[in-house]
């Protein structure tokens, strides 16, 4: 089984230093559990992705590409040559535009099946089983046939620890530099230092006064404001009240449902 992990040159969100995005490190862990994997990076410099060698990859293929060119044609050409069974990528880049469109463009170019937000992959060469995150710990277990491109969700297992010896033994190979790149169609974008916007206060009435917004923000306007207080009730009475309240909120299934 051929597995390719797509690697991007990330930037640390605080320091701005080159770093491998965490989701790609998690993708390497998923790939390592299935078999031998190879990393693929397209960009001017492979130094940023060298860290991936210490996290479980033994070999990284680097396509030299000038800054500012669209990596999708070069990557899709190389992927077509490799013909992998499984391609893993992070769900968003880190430190760039962070739009997460590249895996979708690759899937469209190569006519690959794309499964987003995967937390675990198992199975063999014929059929793969992917666990897709639906948020809040719920999963969708998808069985697929044929080559598949999966993006990794942050809820996947934490990456392996960095091993210095492995990082030294691993190799970064330069494969066919894509001379004919296509410029990314740049829309006119104005950049400014980031400014935090005021948070939307949930539950505050539109056009309400500042006092109402403050009440909504501190939780006084919510359930707590019209809270019920039972002082020294009978324990059985208290238990009935608690169960009725939990069912009213909807976190506890009804007595008929819980048994079925």
């Amino acid at each position: 089984m051929t597995i390719v992990v797509l690697l991007s040159a990330g930037r640390h969100p605080v320091s701005g230093a080159p770093v491998l995005p965490r989701m790609e490190a998690q993708a390497i862990r998923i790939a390592a559990s299935l078999g031998e994997a190879v990393g693929l990076h397209a960009g001017p410099d492979a130094e940023a992705v060298r860290e991936a060698l210490g996290l479980g990859l033994t070999r990284i293929e680097h396509i030299a590409l000038p800054e500012g060119l669209d990596p999708v044609p070069a990557l899709s050409a190389r992927l077509a040559a490799l013909a992998p069974d499984l391609v893993l990528a992070g769900r968003r880049s880190q430190g760039g535009a962070e739009s997460g469109v590249v895996p979708y463009a690759l899937a469209e170019a190569l006519d690959l099946l794309l499964i987003p937000d995967v937390v675990a992959v198992s199975g063999g060469a014929d059929t793969l089983t992917l666990d897709q995150s639906l948020g809040r710990g719920a999963l969708r277990r998808v069985s697929v046939r044929g080559p598949v491109l999966a993006t990794v969700h942050p809820d996947a297992a934490a990456p392996h620890a960095y091993a210095f010896g492995k990082a030294r033994r691993g190799a970064v190979e330069l494969v066919g530099a894509a001379a004919t790149g296509v410029d990314v169609p740049q829309a006119i974008v104005e950049e400014r230092p980031y400014r935090r916007r005021p948070k939307l206060v949930k539950g505050a009435p539109t056009g309400g006064s500042a006092a109402e917004r403050l009440k909504a923000a501190t939780g006084e306007g919510g359930s707590a404001a019209k809270g019920r207080l039972l002082v020294e009730p009978d324990p059985e009475e208290a238990a009935r009240e608690i169960l009725a309240h939990l069912r009213q909120i909807g976190v506890l299934a009804g007595p008929t449902k819980s048994n079925s």
């Binding site: 809270g227 324990p235 238990a239 009240e241 608690i242 169960l243």
Partner: peptide, 16 residues
């Protein structure tokens, strides 16, 4: 709390 019960939790748990 939205529903507050002033009672010993040790007594309420078996009842629940």
């Amino acid at each position: 709390a939205g529903l507050a019960i002033v009672q010993d939790a040790q007594a309420v748990m078996p009842a629940l």
